[in-house]
């Protein structure tokens, strides 16, 4: 199986080849292109929008041409990408939400196609508090997906919804797409309607751990709808995006994340996708001079999973 990692904190716009080469040397064959770094969520929530995505599409393609070429040169496949998020800000100005919907999202799809990336991960809207139910919330997400799904069909891209969380009084609870049964039905409905695999799922291990989801059961329920992964670890309390097997919570010092269930689930559904790590924060935690070592370690964990799965 192929092993991938986020480009965030590795690939520099000034010299993408350096980062892609580092990934290759560390043992990765794929990457999760972090398009979200070009419009950071913190700024979006603050209504501070930069003009990156306002540039004409040709300019954006030109901007990412060195990245595309560097990835090819280094023999790294851009196997998935993360669309900037959120795609809707409750209480945000109409102008802001219109920009996210009509500029950022379609241009992200275009960039995804340009980079020949088959999967793009999007965040569902977090609106249940305002709209009164998870169903009403999904309706809004669904409207958004309907905007970009025709592009997905045209370019052969699968949009992947991801299990998310939301904060509640100092701890974390379920957010959008945490019900695997519902997600499976909704994905099927979308794909049937479009007559193409326009929608799939991205299972995020860290988010699942935060709300104590049963990994194996969740993955099994998703089955072939599971297209991509965000593999990372945390203490079950905060979304830390750390290296798997990092956290223990008892004196026995066994991992407090159900990696066994994760692997069993993947094996059970015959997952053949990329084992992709979403561990960019690890690279800022370790000294910069250790970046290559840390990446190698992450890739080795990928190989460990691969060994069991194969």
């Amino acid at each position: 199986m192929e092993i991938g990692v986020q480009t965030k904190n590795v690939i520099k716009d000034s010299c993408p080849l350096e980062g892609f080469t580092m990934l290759k040397r560390a043992g990765f064959s794929c990457c999760d292109f972090s398009l979200d770094v070009y419009l950071k969520n913190f700024n979006v929530y603050q209504n501070r929008i930069n003009d990156f995505f306002s540039a004409p599409l040709d300019e954006l393609k030109e901007y990412f041409t060195p990245h595309k070429q560097a990835a090819q040169t280094a023999d790294i496949t851009i196997s998935q990408m993360h669309m900037p998020y959120p795609n809707y800000v409750p209480g945000g100005t109409d102008e802001l939400n219109e920009y996210l919907r009509c500029v950022v999202a379609p241009k992200s799809m275009e960039i995804c196609a340009f980079l020949e990336c088959p999967y793009i991960v999007v965040h569902g809207f977090k609106l249940s508090h305002y709209l009164g139910s998870e169903e009403a919330e999904w309706e809004k997400t669904s409207e958004f997906l309907d905007l970009i799904a025709p592009m997905a069909k045209k370019y052969g891209i699968t949009i992947c919804i991801e299990n998310l969380y939301t904060g509640l009084g100092g701890h974390i609870v379920e957010g959008p797409c945490c019900d695997a049964s519902k997600a499976a039905k909704r994905i099927d409905e979308f794909n049937e309607r479009y007559g193409a695999q326009v929608l799939g799922f991205c299972f995020d291990t860290g988010h699942a751990n935060l709300v104590g989801l049963d990994f194996e059961n969740f993955i099994t329920t998703l089955g072939p709808r599971l297209k991509v992964l965000h593999i990372h670890d945390n203490d079950g309390i905060s979304d830390l995006h750390q290296i798997p097997f990092t956290f223990t919570r008892t004196r026995e010092n066994t991992s407090s994340t159900d990696w066994d269930g994760f692997v069993k689930g993947l094996k059970g559904i015959g997952y053949k996708g990329v084992l992709s790590f979403e561990t960019a924060p690890v690279l800022t935690a370790f000294p910069n001079v250790m970046k290559a070592d840390v990446l190698r370690f992450i890739a080795n964990i990928g190989r460990y999973f691969d060994g069991i799965l194969s």
């Binding site: 751990n209 709300v211 919570r249 066994t254 159900d258």
Partner: peptide
Amino acid sequence: QAEDFAGHLVRGALCESH
């Protein structure tokens, strides 16, 4: 019911509504 998974309380018996 919640279940103790190596010190982390996670979803145990009958935590999935369906």
